[in-house]
Simulated assay, not measured.
Amino acid sequence: MNATLRSAMQAAGLSPRQLAVRVGVSTKTVERWLADSELIPHARNREDAAQALGVDVEMLWPKSVAERVKTGADREIVRSYPYRSACPSTVWADLVGRANGELFFAGYTNYFLWTQQPAFAATLRAKAEAGCRVRFLVGDPEGEATRRREAVEGVALSVSTRIRMTLDELAKMGPVEGVEVRTSDAPDAASHIALSVFRFDDEALVTPHLARLVGHDSPLLHLKRYESGGMFDRFVEHAEELWVGAAAV
């Protein structure tokens, strides 16, 4: 029996069925994990289960360590997705939920957060009231970079519309201490529109925008900080530089 997994599930308040839903496997699969401590799930399932339970993979399946040892900059890559839309919404929710000090949404529009995360405004307010710094950096809906990107994408839900959706949702929240909003302006807007950085304390989700593709069709990297000057720090420094040059809303 995998007693560590059972204890982690009890601490997280998750039944086998609930964990199965989070990971995307059957309830019977989770029950097999619980029954056999020698059974090691596939890497993707291990990561998703650990994410859902808020613990390290090595704690649940120590024997998996040799399989996933990484060195150098690679160790900061938790997971990669060929499309942003392939990253489960539960991953975003868990990262937001665990963050205590920094939430920085430096996507060019950020609108999908409001459509995919239930009660997102209430969550942001609660985080800010608990002392978490919450920042949104979006593009200028009237900016030249925005107009050029709209011409490239050629989709009905335009870039400027998606930005305004985010700004409208933030405006509905009213003034909230700890929540800051800025818009990037030229020349920084061009750098901003090409790369989205979403920070959750010492973890980040990063999307480089490819050619004519909209955000959800571009790849995504899940990063976790392990060392100074690593991949996490490089991308966060990029977002912070854009923030400094942005205009307050």
Rank of each mutant, 00 (worst) to 15 (best):
M1A: 15
N2P: 07
S7K: 13
Q18R: 10
Q18Y: 08
R22E: 11
T27S: 14
V30N: 10
E31I: 13
E31C: 12
D36S: 12
L39T: 02
R44Q: 11
D48P: 01
D48A: 09
D56Y: 09
M59L: 14
P62T: 03
P62S: 06
S64F: 04
V65I: 15
T71V: 15
T71A: 12
G72E: 12
R75C: 14
R75A: 13
Y83W: 13
C87W: 06
S89A: 14
L95H: 09
L95Q: 08
L103H: 05
F104E: 03
Y108H: 06
Y108I: 06
N110P: 04
F112I: 09
L113G: 08
Q117K: 06
A121M: 12
L124S: 05
K127S: 00
K127H: 06
A130F: 07
G131L: 03
C132R: 00
L137E: 08
V138A: 06
E144A: 14
R147V: 06
R149L: 03
E153C: 01
S158A: 09
V159T: 05
E169F: 03
V176W: 05
V176K: 04
T183L: 13
S184N: 03
S191E: 15
I193G: 01
F198D: 13
D202P: 01
E203S: 08
L205T: 02
H209S: 09
L210P: 04
L213R: 13
G215H: 02
G215K: 01
H216D: 15
H222A: 03
R225M: 07
R225F: 06
S228F: 14
R234N: 07
A246Q: 00
A246P: 02
